[in-house]
Simulated scan of single mutants.
Amino acid sequence: MSDKHITGWTIAPQHGVEVVSARMGPHGLDGHFHDAWSIGVILEGTCSFRAGNREYEARQGDLFLIPPFEVHACSAASSDVRYKVLYIGDTCLQKIDAGRFSALANASSRVFTAPPLAGHIAALDTRHVDAPRTDALLRALAALLPSPRETRVRERELHPLQNAMHRLWQSDVEAGELVERLPHSRWHTLRTFRSQTGLSPSAYLRQLRALKARFLLNQQQASLSDLALLLHFTDQAHFTRTFKAVFGVTPGRLRKVIQRR
């Protein structure tokens, strides 16, 4: 059960970046993922989370970095946690050394300490994206990351079923149909998918559609029931439950936060 409260969120697709500030109580969030790099700083408290089958603890002032589509679950180890996070998309990464971020997906840790960078992230305005400041932050961050040559690792590949979902999430298709289209047996596909992602195919597809919904909330004035149908949820309640599992708040609440800026 989530007890998260988002206090600010701005979306700037033209820059490929979102800036979010939030507060989370001890219940945290169950396993979920994002479709962009999550780069954040703990402003207050201590956050425990699991990502890539490893346990982490991020304390006040620590930075956390989670690759796109990596399922993670988090909770507050203290009574309350405040944090600020950037969601960095491909548009933004192309301005810097994206290869370093790819290498990080194979790194052994998701938490590190860099006080100056943490201070800059903490100072970002969640009502307006300042592109020059964001670009400077990303370049500073890239300088801290290992180069692909230093790590000597191969960029992780998405599961074939993930690739199919990423192509077809807008279509009126169920996860089971996509499983049947793959050349391997159903048992093999389900086993390898859950092992690699940590979610069932149905849960993954629902979360992927919910992730896309935040852009629709920002761009359209359609009702939540209409958005639910557009994203192929059975009804608004189903859409709201999935959305809250990913973001910790309802779509109606997030729309109000986004439009408040």
Rank of each mutant, 00 (worst) to 15 (best):
P251V: 11
H15L: 11
A213D: 10
E174F: 09
V153E: 13
L104Y: 13
R149Q: 11
S225H: 14
V17K: 01
F193G: 03
L124F: 04
T10S: 07
Y56I: 04
T242Q: 06
L138N: 10
L190I: 05
V85Y: 05
K256E: 11
K256Y: 03
A142P: 01
G61T: 07
E157K: 15
A164P: 04
R206Q: 12
L224M: 15
S147L: 05
R152W: 09
G8E: 04
F239C: 14
N218K: 13
A58I: 02
A210I: 03
S75Q: 11
H34Y: 12
H188K: 12
H120R: 14
V71Q: 03
P132T: 00
Y204H: 12
T46S: 00
E157F: 14
E57K: 02
S102I: 06
M24D: 11
R261K: 13
G89S: 07
I121A: 02
R54V: 02
D130Q: 03
G28E: 13
H34F: 10
L217E: 05
W37Y: 12
H232I: 08
V153I: 11
A77W: 06
S102Y: 11
S195C: 09
T192E: 09
I11M: 06
A203T: 08
P115N: 02
W9I: 08
F112E: 02
L199S: 03
Q236V: 15
N53P: 04
W169Q: 01
S2C: 05
W169V: 11
H120V: 05
T91Y: 04
T134Q: 15
D226V: 04
L227K: 05
H184D: 15
V129R: 09
D80I: 05
A245D: 11
P68K: 07
A237G: 11
D235V: 15
K212A: 15
W169M: 11
W9K: 08
H232S: 07
I42T: 08
G198S: 01
D235K: 10
F101T: 09
Y204D: 05
D62Q: 06
V20C: 05
